[in-house]
Every structure is written in C-alpha cells, then in structure tokens.
Design a protein around this nucleic acid. Structure first.
Length: 105
DNA sequence: CCTGGGGCAGCCG
DNA sequence: ACGGCTGCCCCAG
C-alpha cells in the first residue's frame, strides 16, 4: 500500500524518489506538479529541511537552468553524487540538462 | 555580473 | 494558533 503524504513536503519527497537514476529535475517542475508553480522556494526548503536525507535523492534536483543551485551537505557532494549516477556536471551546471530532465507530467 | 522583488512552506519563539 | 525569519528559487531590469 502506498503511503500518500498530504503535506507539501511529503509530496516533494515522494516525487524525488520517483526520479530515475541518471535523471534530474527542477524545483519548478516539482512545484508545478504540486500545482504551485511559484512554490519553487518551498520545494527547495522541503529538501533542505528534508528528514529523509539518504532516502530521498535531493541531489537529483537542480535549478531551472540546470544549475546545481545549492545543497545542504555541500554543493560539492551533490555534484559528486550526480557524476556517480552518470550525470555530467560542468562549471556547476548539468551537461545536456534538457536531455536528462525528468518530468512528472 | 549584481540587485531587487515576488511568493510559499518550514522552523522557532 | 500567530508572527517573523530563512531558503537547494525564479524573473526582470
């Protein structure tokens, strides 16, 4: 049985878990999927204060431009994880970002 | 490149 | 429950 969180934070975490390995998404996509296209900041907050650190791949979420943005454990770690999953990162940006972009839509 | 403004959820007192 | 502060953001100038 699937656990459906009704909190904003909970939904964000669930979406993050849906992101396949080697793919990335944007805060905007998540916000839009939650019907709150302006809540991109709130999405980032949910990840930052995320209670499920290793459970949720927050490192697969990047800025609208494919920019890494930030990371609670350090941007450096985020890039490292992405590269391990096969996502190239150059100068703090995702290489072929649009091709690796995953949509919830 | 940097600055300011907007809008939204989480956390703390 | 309320108010203020913060933030892994986005957009325009």
């Amino acid at each position: 049985m699937k656990f459906v969180a009704k909190n904003f934070k909970g939904r964000v975490l669930e979406l993050l878990e849906k992101i396949p390995r080697g793919k990335v998404t944007t805060y905007k996509e998540i916000a839009g999927a939650l019907k709150n296209p302006n809540a991109s900041r709130a999405v980032g907050n949910a990840c930052n204060r995320n209670p499920n650190s290793p459970k949720v791949p927050c490192h697969r979420v990047v800025g609208f431009d494919g920019s890494i943005g930030g990371y609670a454990s350090g941007v450096r770690a985020k890039i490292k994880l992405l590269e391990q999953e096969g996502v190239e990162v150059k100068s703090g940006k995702i290489v072929d970002f649009e091709e690796k972009l995953f949509s919830f839509n």
